[in-house]
Design a protein around this nucleic acid. Sequence first.
DNA 1: GGTTGACCTGGAGCGCGCTCCAGGTTGGAG
DNA 2: CTCCAACCTGGAGCGCGCTCCAGGTCAACC
Lengths: 122, 122
Amino acid sequence: MTGYAPAEAARRSGFSLDTLRYYEKIGLLADVSRTSGGQRIFTDDDLGWLVLFRCLRDTGMPIAQMCRYAQLAREGEHTADERRELLERHATQVEEQMRLLQRQYDHLREKIRFYEQQPASG
Amino acid sequence: MTGYAPAEAARRSGFSLDTLRYYEKIGLLADVSRTSGGQRIFTDDDLGWLVLFRCLRDTGMPIAQMCRYAQLAREGEHTADERRELLERHATQVEEQMRLLQRQYDHLREKIRFYEQQPASG
DNA sequence: GGTTGACCTGGAGCGCGCTCCAGGTTGGAG
DNA sequence: CTCCAACCTGGAGCGCGCTCCAGGTCAACC
């Protein structure tokens, strides 16, 4: 159970210091331990959560939904099914997102190809 | 050169009426023609632009950059190279975006798989 | 010619996800 | 013991991309 200073946690998670504080403030990241003086110490467990949050944010999950997930996890093992379903639904949405992105990327590439052939039009 | 009423243009482009007006207000969509009474009539050409904007937005291009592209197009054919480069750079960013999305999707799927095997942990 | 629904304008407001600030405290290095 | 960079708090502010509103106009249909 190594402890990380805020700057180190920020570096490792890719979130800014302000964002880490914000996540704690809104209850997404709970019970971050402190020194006697009140400064935060992030554990490997906290880092694990941050990695998950990074994954979910990068795939477009709204913060409110991540809060719900984190809340369920805090409630204990009996919420495991609900958590799995939440992730499953999200994964399905991500698949749709990927298909759309691919489709629009293809359009974009076609547009560029068009430019390369005949240098005209908008 | 068929004309479309605002509601029809909205339906075909997938943008809301307010968004169409907003795009015109900020100069993204220029010179939308009007009836004598001042109501908008969208042409096929306008629709073509909207389809492009939809593509660029869906792939995450900021509005400011789309404005720049549209401005260049209005300036004439001598900006064709610059426009092509703008799209090319964007396409490269989209590729990176797709790679990240795929990677995080894989993580997500692995997390779900973990839930299905042993129903424990956050 | 009256009705009604679609449309107009300028400008305010919103939801999200941070980001920044002031003013103060902590704690490790020298 | 002193210094100073890193940290703390509560709360305001921001950038983006719309979205909504009030109060009025237009135009197609009966």
